[in-house]
Computed example of a mutant assay.
Amino acid sequence: MSTLEEHVDIAVPIDAAWDSLHHMEEYPRFMDGVRDARTETGGRAHLDVDAGGRSRSFEAEVSDHGDHRVMEWRTTGDPRLSGSFSLQPIDQGHTRVQARVEYDPGPVRDSFGGPKGFAQANAIERLVRGDLEHFKEYLERQR
């Protein structure tokens, strides 16, 4: 299992960032490859994704730890992915968003194709970093 952690500082209050994470229907606006995303009942989410030239649908279980500003998620099918978003206030108008993704490179490669080993890890890192930067731009544009 591989773990990736990235963060970005955003010029919005923590409540604004926290609320935006819960509007999954907005994910296609800032997450590369996400065509559709929606919240479903029972702490579940559905995402339609294009990655590596392949289209996939994912179901995920999502849980909140609002008192600590942590949203955890995990896919319910293959490939097995899990992760979290942790929000930390920097000051009244700025928030640090930490993304953590855990994945097994083999099944991810089998599901989406692409390079092996180190090159794949770099591609996933670029994707997560890019999505965080797009989230930052999206939120700061809303202000």
Rank of each mutant, 00 (worst) to 15 (best):
G114C: 06
V62W: 01
E72A: 11
F118G: 01
E40H: 04
S86K: 11
I90L: 15
V34N: 08
G83A: 02
I14Q: 11
T95W: 09
E72W: 04
E40R: 14
A45F: 05
V70E: 10
A16K: 14
R69L: 07
H94W: 14
P79M: 03
P89H: 02
G114Q: 04
T41Y: 03
G53D: 11
I14N: 04
L81S: 03
S63K: 09
V70I: 14
E102N: 08
F112S: 05
D110H: 05
H65V: 00
H23W: 00
V12W: 10
L81N: 05
G53L: 07
E25A: 10
S86Y: 00
E5N: 11
H68A: 13
E40V: 09
S111F: 05
R69T: 03
E102I: 04
P105H: 10
R29C: 09
F58Q: 07
R69F: 07
D67T: 09
Q92P: 00
A51H: 08
R96C: 15
F112W: 10
G66K: 01
T95N: 06
H22I: 00
A119T: 11
R44I: 01
A121Y: 13
E6D: 04
Q88A: 12
G52V: 07
I10H: 03
D78G: 05
P107V: 04
A37R: 05
T75P: 04
I90V: 15
A121H: 15
L47V: 04
V97K: 05
R29P: 00
G106H: 11
E6N: 07
S111T: 11
A121S: 15
T3F: 04
R109P: 00
H23R: 14
G52P: 10
G113I: 04
K116A: 13
K116M: 11
G93K: 11
P89A: 12
S86N: 02
D32P: 01
D91T: 05
H22K: 10
T41G: 12
D32A: 14
G114D: 06
E72D: 12
I90F: 02
M31H: 05
E40Q: 10
D64Q: 09
D67C: 02
E102C: 12
V34R: 04
L81A: 03
M71N: 03
D78H: 07
T75D: 06
R56N: 13
T95F: 06
S57A: 14
H7V: 00
